[in-house]
Design a protein around this nucleic acid. Sequence first.
RNA 1: GCGCCUAUAGCUCAACCGGAUAGAGCAACGGCCUUCUAAGCCGUAGGUUGCAGGUUCGAGUCCUGCUGGGCGUACCA
Length: 561
Amino acid sequence: MKETIIELLGQALDSLKADGTIPSDASPQIKVDPTKDKTHGDYASNLAMMLSKAAGMKPRDLAEKLIAALPASEAVSKVEIAGPGFLNFFADTGAVADIVRRVFSEGEQFGHSEFGRGEKVQVEFVSANPTGPLHVGHGRGAAVGDVLCRLLSATGHDVTREFYYNDAGAQIDNLALSTQARTKGLGPDDASWPENGYRGDYISELAASYMAGDTVEADGKQVTGAADTDDLDAIRVFAVAYLRHEQDLDLKAFGVEFDVYFLESSLYSEGKVEETVKRLVDNGYTYEDDGALWLRTTDFGDDKDRVMRKRDGGYTYFLPDVAYHFDKWQRGFTQVINEQGADHHSTVTRVRAGLQALKADIPKGWPDYVLHQMVTVMRSGKEVKLSKRAGSYVTLRDLIEEVGRDATRYFLAARRADSQLTFDIDLARSQSNDNPVYYIQYAHARVHSVLRKADREDKSFDETLAMAQLTLLTSDQEKAVMNRMAQFPDVVSHAARVREPQQVAQYLQDLSSDFHTCYNAVKVMVEDNATRNARLALGLATAQVIRNGLALLGVSAPEEM
RNA sequence: GCGCCUAUAGCUCAACCGGAUAGAGCAACGGCCUUCUAAGCCGUAGGUUGCAGGUUCGAGUCCUGCUGGGCGUACCA
C-alpha cells in the first residue's frame, strides 16, 4: 500500500517536472508515513511541504497541483489536503485487506527483507571474562545483542555472533589464586586470602570440582581437575574451563548462541599482538617514555596518548583490543557492532584511534558500538544487590529461574539500550495485565483459542473462502489491525538499521492492543460463513505477525495460556 | 575539570534517522463476564517534553549554553 502511494506520487512528481512547475533537478526523497489519527486517512505525505521552497509556491497550492497530477488508482479511495500541506491518502478497503493475503503467503518470512544482502556483519556481545557467573548486566547485553543479530539476519545480513574473552591476564591469575586458596580450605576472611581475590561461593564449588577430579567441557575442549593444590597452572586452566562451562549453561538457559568464541590468548600465540605493535611502530605513531611504549592516539581524536607496553614489558588490554579488531577487519566484516556495557565506553575512541594508526584503510567510524546502560534489579520496591552465590551481584541464572526466560528476555530487550534499566522482579513475575509479555502472548493465544472453538464446532477455517471474502473486514477495529500489520516490515528494517531492538517490543504491544480491542468489538464466530472465515483469516494473520515479532525477540508464542 | 549517556503524565516507559492535537501501561475514579480465554475491553482524569536561546514552513527529535542524574576519566579489563 505504502509502496503504491510512493509510486503514484513519483509519477505525479515527474509530470509536474515535465510542465515546469517544479525544477527538474529537484529529487526529494518521497516520504509516506502511516497516520496516527484516522481522520487523516491511512497514509500521509509531506511532499508538498518539502518542495514548496524549490517550486516557489505555497505548500497547499503545490499540494493541489500534486493531487491533480496524481494518476488514478484502485487502491486509493480519496486524497485530501490538510493542515499546512499534508496529502492524506484514504486506502480502499480491499487494498487494506491485501495485507492479510500477503501475511498468509509470506508466513514466517513476513517482515523479513533483503536490504542487507551480501553484507558480512559481525556482532560481538556479552564477552564476559571467565571469572564468574553472568550477571544481569551481561543479561542485558545478551538480550540486546541476540535480538540485534536476529534483526540483522531477518534483513538479509550475513551475521556472525562472537564472544571474546580474556583467558590469560591479571584477572585470570587472580582467579587461579582465589581457587587455589579455596582448595586449601581458606576463606575470604583468612589472613592469607589473596588480595582482591574473588570471594563468591561459586569459587568454592569450582575448587571442590577441581579437587574431585571432575571433567568439564568448554569451547570444544575437555579439562580434568588435577586435584593438586600446588599446581597453579592446572588450577588456572581448569578454572577457566569450569567457568566458561558455567557461562555456557547461563547462555543456554537464556537461549543465546554464538558462532565464534574468540580467545584473547590466541592473539599472542598467533603473533597478532606482535604484528600490531610492529605496524604501529613502523607507521611512526609510537614513542618511548618513562620506560613504557606509547601510542599517539591524540593524533586520532583521543584526549590523551595511551600506553601500549608497560614498563614491566607486559601489554595493556588496549593493545590486544586493537589487534583483535584488526583481525575482525581482516576477516572481511564490513560492519562490526560491539555490544557492551556503557562502563567500558572509554575504549571506543581508543580502539578506533588504534585502528586508524594501523593505516589499513579502515573507515574512521568503524567499528560500531551499541552501549547499554546499567541495570538495577528491584524486588518489593527495594534494590536487590546480592546473590548468595556470586556475592556482589544478581546473576542472570537467578533471574531466569525466578521470572522465566521469556519475561527476562523481554524486559531486558524492551528498553532503549542507552537509558538505565530498572528490572522489577515483581512485575516480570506477575501474571496480569501489568505484564507486557503476557499481554502480547495472550493476544496470540486468543487467536488459537478461537480457532480451536471453530474446529470443535465443525466450522474449521477455510482459507480459500476467506481469501475471497477479505473485503468483509470493514470495521474500524479490523482496519486498525490490518494497517498495523502492514507496518511490520518497516518496523523490522528500521529497528535493524538504527540498531534498536526495543522498537520491535513496542510494536508488538501496539499490535496486541489493536487486536484485543478488535477481539472485544467484533465477534469472530458468527453464523455467516464468509464473514466468519474472513475474520478467522484476520486473526490468523495477526497471530502470524505476533509470532514473527516474538521470534525476533527470542520469546515464545504459546497457543494456549 | 574533561568525555560519553540521559532528563517526556504521580510511577515505569514509547514516539518509525524533523511532521498535524506528544502516546501506552501502572497507580486513581466509573463501567463491561447466561456470547469466541476478564492474563481482556470501554470511559474519566492526568503534560510549559529539565531551563534558556537558535536553525525552519514545522522541533520531544537537530545546534549552542545552563542545571540535575548515571558512567568513565589507570603502565586494571
